[in-house]
Design a protein around this nucleic acid. Sequence first.
DNA 1: TCTATATCACCC
DNA 2: AAACGGGTGATATAGA
Length: 571
Amino acid sequence: MGLNNYSNIWCLDFEFRAPDGERPAVRCLVAIEYHSGQTIRRWCDELGETPPFLIDESTLIVAYYASAEMGCFLSLGWDLPPNLLDLYVEFRRKHNGLFLKAGSDLNGALIQYGLSVIPDKQEMRELAMREGDVYSEQEKSDLVAYCQADVEALIHLLPKMEESIDWPRALVRGSYMKAVAVMEYNGVPIDTEILERLRDRWNDIRQDLIAEIDQDYGVYEGSVFKADRFEQWLTQQGIAWPRLESGKLDLKSDTFRDIAKGHPELEPLKELRYSLSELRLNKLAVGRDGRNRCLLSPFRAKTSRNQPSNSKFIFGPSAWLRALIRPAVGYGLAYIDWSQQEFAIAAVLSGDADMQQAYTSGDPYLEFAKLAGAVPPEGTKDSHPKERKLFKNCILGVQYGMGPESLAQRIGEPVIKGRELIQLHKEIFPDYWKWSQAVVDYALTSGTLFSTLGWSLSINSQANPRSLANWPVQTNGAEILRLAVILIVETGIAVCCPVHDAILIEAPLERLDEDIRTAQQLMQQAGEMILGGFKLRTDVDRVCYPERYIDERGEKMWEKMMKLLSAFDSE
DNA sequence: TCTATATCACCC
DNA sequence: AAACGGGTGATATAGA
């Protein structure tokens, strides 16, 4: 397996315009065949219904950040190539965890391999991004030349990177980049009418909230919370307030919550600070067709997770804003997520049979509580909610390496309770703890961790052991997600986006349930592929037009905002 | 006055 | 030194 398996290797790059929320508008394409040097240069009006070169099973397409190029294929109505190698992804894989001064973009990779960089031409990028499609002959030729420089760089980079390409799994990652392009092309349907109203009334809502509540405090200057004014107010009221080590007031919402218990007069201010921190939707990237689209930034995180911009992506800001997600007429949506995915992954990777059994029981949190003797065998979620909550917090905390103090704080119990819970976890799932320690030891001695499908992490000596122990779990989770997305997109189901351990799909109402079933099967299958046959469960949130997607955590906030909005609009 | 840093809030 | 993993981003304040 390798480059010599292919009779044609086309390195290619497009220039295109893609404003926030819109699909790419192609400007031009340059492709160079690696062996022959055959060069194809095309302005968009010279591109037809199929690519200007043959793409078959013996062809390899090579690009840097290939989701962009695949997005251009989709815009042009072309079939996506069967074999795709993304040098960005392979570069990330090879250097993940290392500090790269020049970063991981194309120039960063060129520098890393001692190749000459491409001068950054701001004017060329602006030329590609220009509105409309009227270009002079000179401009066209300049932009094509700029595009060609990138492809020539790829031609030089490919042999330098050849040795470190992780065949054949690089092709799986390439397939994911195709699926990413499809998801970015699809996007998430948004209720643009309410979005516009919220945006228009943004400042009114802010000012209204502040004016109403701050009259009793006088701690805001315009819309800015001033720490020194708050300090004055505290002195007047004779309230002692905790400080950070730096000497500044500790203004965490948790601190507000704790103090407000003894000083209920703080309650409205606490609420106000919370509400204001939630007002964020000005950067949400919504196209003219009312769909949220943004770069999903695959493989950006150290764990290879996608890392879309939180402000552009509808799943980035707080959960109440997700009520803006609404299927179009005749359509439905389904948010399908794996149940307790990381618990299951840890159970399988560690080979801890009791953890696996706890997962298989259907409710690992309750099962843990039963194994610990805190809940009788016949107990249920409803009969023992408090116990279940404690053991749930313990499981979730342990996954991230939480200590007894933090756990105790989280569950609002004395430290001894936190210690007791973690001790129970150690006694009941000893194989997990052995494995977890072994991962850290291996990481620190070998200097590298690998996932099932070859994603890797280079480790330096000051690595955080909690981070190391969690890395295989999160990384294999990311791999399961990628496989599932590849499989689901390939069946033709419309996937809107991934959300770490979940996938949002869209379908005409008459096909929705069938697509949900298929997607769930494929999500289970993806889990089995990574976890040696272990079966992961999934949960579904199903929304049909004219409903909107409501995340229960944000329901109250959404209603509050809608109330404010209609109050303003009826004025 | 502008930028860097610290801190915080949110997501999975 | 801290003791909750992986992230992005807004904001207030300190510092150049």
